[in-house]
Design a protein around this nucleic acid. Structure first.
Lengths: 228, 228
DNA sequence: TCGAAAAACTGATATATATCATATTTTAAA
DNA sequence: TTTAAAATATGATATATATCAGTTTTTCGA
């Protein structure tokens, strides 16, 4: 069992605010889990009973609309925590998390986190700051979804993905998403996403490298994202 | 100058967690403001330097998209607090707040709230819980905006408005919004909103009462909201 | 390595929604 | 009260996007 006190991943999230003693307590009760690509970490309606700290890998966080269409709300990677919103509200999960790659995560039981929230104001404040940032991001997404065209949202998504996941040694965006996933991020039909990607490829703004996508003309993509 | 200790409005927000002493301190430094319908309370890019506690009236909280279209993110009324997200992130405001009616609000300076956040864990935890709820609401809105048709969103908005603002003595939804405001809530062109409202009126699902709207057939509206 | 299933792709068509134009009604200011 | 401006309404049309149908390519398990 790896020790939280020595885990570098906590530096990237609110757990960095915990004291050594608190971390030792967490180490004692947390469980490590290996999650296979495609596995469901949790789904809408689940009682979570804790939070997940992502040590390695990527997952998508999504929600079903009443129409039966799936909307990806966020992509989560190393260092992030998921499940904390439901924990704080003391509710069943409103979201579904599915692994996009093999993952290495730690599960920390609810009671331990609540103990820290009640006893360590620095931790609580950091969780609050993180949530404030999430809320700002969500507000931006609402505006984009409501006001921008699918083409704009696709361009923006590609730029955002490159910024977040960087490029691999071949210059391609370092995350593999299916066409359906991309469609579910921008909120459109899979066919529409495919068509618009093909169009961008034809215009040499992007290119496909095996399963990945590389941005060739960032400037042009930024223009499209802004509606030109 | 009214006293926070005696103010009933605080019972509806996180300020309820403050101690008597803390409230007395807030009373000493807060300022009351009368805001006229149509006035801007704050706008995107403003340094807020505090939060606003709404004692009376309603305001819309919105954000401009890069396209130059305005998206209303939330409607805020008596008991709610605005400006706390920017305060916690220590950022300029990402949103604009405009009064939809004459308002009576209290402005509480940033330093005082920060003091309480640092010293009163119950207060911080309540702010955190409120923000967790806001985040859930925002996530739902993302999904609706991305996956539902304008017609669905209009129906849902009308139902939501009735639930939130109740009906007046004539049975109309007790908030007055311009057609443009309604369009900016559902994220569509004003003409489209008008057309769809007319359609609902023609079908006797809603009716117009002067400036207000009344829901005549809630069941049917719920069906439309669900995509039928 | 084969074959079935899944994913990616393309075309044709329908439909929802935006846009532009213009008319009518309401509001508010002079 | 009159009048200009704003809000509401409606029609015509263009366009973006969804949907349905079918093909090709890729993936992966037996």
């Amino acid at each position: 069992m790896s020790k939280c006190e020595q885990c570098i991943v906590r530096k990237f999230n609110s757990l960095k605010e915990l004291t050594k003693d608190e971390l030792i307590r967490i180490t004692a009760c947390k469980t490590s889990r290996i999650i296979k690509k495609g596995d469901v970490i949790f789904k809408e309606g689940d009682h979570l009973n804790g939070i997940f700290c992502i040590k390695e890998g990527i997952c998508k966080v999504s929600k079903m609309s009443e129409n039966g269409r799936n909307q990806i709300i966020n992509l989560i990677h190393r260092g992030n925590i998921i499940g904390e919103r439901s924990l704080i509200s003391d509710e069943i999960s409103n979201l579904t998390a599915v692994a996009l790659s093999d993952m290495d995560v730690c599960f920390i039981p609810k009671e331990e986190i609540i103990k820290d929230l009640e006893k360590n104001p620095g931790f609580t404040l950091d969780v609050l700051k993180t949530m404030a940032t999430s809320l700002k991001t969500a507000d931006n997404l609402i505006v984009n979804m409501a006001q921008k065209s699918v083409k704009q949202r696709l361009a923006e998504t590609l730029l955002h993905l490159e910024g977040k996941f960087k490029t691999n040694n071949k210059g391609a965006i370092d995350i593999h998403l299916s066409r359906e996933d991309i469609a579910n991020i921008i909120g459109t039909a899979t066919e529409s996403a495919i068509r618009l990607l093909s169009e961008l490829k034809k215009k040499k703004i992007i290119t496909f490298m095996g399963k990945d996508i590389a941005i060739l003309d960032k400037q042009e993509l930024e223009k499209i994202a802004q509606g030109f």
